[in-house]
Design a binder for these strands. Structure first.
Lengths: 330, 330
DNA sequence: TAAGGTTTTGTAAACGTTTACAGGAGAAGG
DNA sequence: CCTTCTCCTGTAAACGTTTACAAAACCTTA
């Protein structure tokens, strides 16, 4: 690897001039500039960013940290972040914490050590407070989807509205008893969605609360298990509402396995996308994940740029997709 | 941020001793070791990896670079890499090149500058040779799926076998005319799969070559377009073979849109997974992506460890999944 | 042509580590 | 008690940059 010294030697100037030529071209004389650039090309020199970061304490890079990279929602958040960073000349590091607080802590440590400039952050579910490493170093960060009640920007989906859309859709189709398969109450979004359902379904009569709500982890296995339990418990129901895509996928698997035809025997509605190839299509609300990732990143760049205004929260409205939509287009 | 100097001051020793205490504990006296560790804990000190990398020219981190993070195949490669790295104490940086040679070059530059120790590498399709940056710096790397004919380890799928399985399956089901929707011939894997099909389908009679093979980009749009063209051209066919998941998804979309029922009016078979929720299931071969990523990473760690033996190639056999499989399990 | 100003340059310190080297302290052996 | 050896320690240089500062070179202008 060539260093700045090699360039300086070839161009016959000091290292300082080379550095200036790259970072502040106007402060070096035209003829030297030319010679330096020629030397750079000749040697194929590229500055060592590690050394640079060490000195300037910044790295022109940000990270996006998600709990599960194979969840399409998180994937789109990443794509959204990429879209705005590409233009800004930042490098993006993608970190997958696999819903493990431990892995998350390790990754954070690592990012911090590498002088990352900011973080688009979807924390793991089990965190109810900012990891100590983050509270110790005031790294600019923006929450997406999940958040921890700290003084940071956060980009969120309107969970209550999404549940409401699904619920009203099912009601409008004539369904009487609707069961919920929900996420854990200890997480912000799990709780928000569960409570939205509660306040809709049990307005008049709270007696079905136990029978018609099951909650568990936001995982495929969780959805599968809860759906099975619901069916095998023998309660009467004509529709099921799953509060995220993984739960929905698990539920769908369970139903198919039990020989229940969806939506003929039982209707299933899902919060988040479940995969566009499912046929017949499953009614669902779709979060604007790409836009959420992009917006978060825009905020983050502002913060990195020095903006220290009060924390902002942006609520994105989910969009309802129903089988009727698909008919329209096919 | 605390530095090693702070620790040294608190512990009342020199910075060298602190450094030794962390990297070579046996070379420092027990009482000093205790004092130093106490100071570290007290200050919440963690060594700055940037500075460390600058000195030791290594970073205990590797990257996995894929052309499309939303392709389930690449996703599983990443997961496979994660699984072996977690144990080895390396940090993994995930880079998404979005099938752009330009983005790929930028990312490579960046990784190199950050003293990455090695690379699990799925190059973008348009590259037919190693990017100059890589040939200039002999970074340890292992190819997965795609490769560029250089002297590096490579983990690949048995493309010919996969195509053959699909082809024979379709033949066994009684299909007479089978059309191919393939990837670009300028890419290794596109070509391998196309040629496998050619040698199977046109053994006796080469006359259908034009009519029954369409190739384009490995994208959903490509599959959609080619499938449409095939159908609208009016050629007779009773099965279509798509040589990757994106092509398959695009084709399926096109067929549905044109009112063609799969598999009743036309059978579709796909190389790679197309999504597990498609109903009825589409026959496909599945690559052992997770294992491929894991194996690549194991090789990479060996190379980083100094192994400079001859380049190895491992061929993973794809697995055939058919609707009959699913029936068995439901 | 001398004084003053402006532009361009090089020297050297700094960023936070690691590590070669040399020196000091203590133990062992004569 | 002196030598030799071992073990531990601190000093200082190095990694590849950036940048404050001072010196040098070049213009203006009177």
């Amino acid at each position: 690897m060539k260093t700045i010294k090699d360039v300086a030697a070839v161009a016959g100037v000091s290292v300082a001039s080379v550095s200036r030529a790259m970072n502040n071209p106007s402060t070096v004389s035209p003829e030297n500039l030319k010679r330096i650039n020629a030397a750079i090309r000749k040697l194929g020199y590229a500055p060592n960013k590690i050394a640079r970061s060490l000195k300037v304490q910044t790295s022109k890079s940000v990270a996006v940290m998600v709990p599960d990279i194979s969840n399409p929602f998180h994937l789109k958040v990443i794509k959204g972040a990429e879209s705005v960073l590409a233009a800004a000349g930042y490098t993006l590091f993608i970190m997958d914490t696999e819903e493990s607080a431990e892995k998350e802590a390790r990754s954070l440590r690592d990012l911090l050590d590498r002088q990352i400039d900011g973080l688009v952050y979807v924390p793991v579910l089990t965190n109810d407070r900012l990891p100590p490493i983050l509270s110790a170093n005031q790294l600019p960060l923006v929450f997406v989807d999940r958040f921890l009640g700290t003084e940071h920007d956060s980009i969120r989906g309107n969970n209550a509205a999404g549940i409401s859309m699904l619920y009203r859709y099912l009601i409008a189709k004539g369904h009487r008893t609707i069961a919920l398969i929900g996420g854990p109450d200890f997480s912000q979004i799990g709780r928000e969605r569960n409570e939205a359902f509660r306040s809709l379904a049990f307005q008049e009569d709270g007696s079905h609360a136990q029978a018609l709500m099951r909650t568990g982890d936001f995982t495929v296995e969780g959805g599968y298990r809860l759906a099975r339990e619901l069916v095998l418990s023998g309660v009467a129901m004509d529709a099921v509402l799953a509060t995220n895509n993984l739960l929905g996928i698990g539920a769908l698997k369970a139903f198919r396995e039990l020989g229940i035809r969806v939506p003929i025997n039982l209707e299933l509605a899902v919060f988040d996308e479940i995969g566009e190839l499912v046929d017949p299509p499953i009614p669902h609300v779709r979060q604007q994940a790409f836009e959420m990732g992009a917006q978060a990143t825009r905020f983050l760049l502002e913060r990195i740029g020095g903006d220290s205004g009060p924390a902002r929260t942006v609520l994105f409205e989910p969009l309802l997709f129903t089988p009727e939509h698909y008919k329209k287009f096919s």
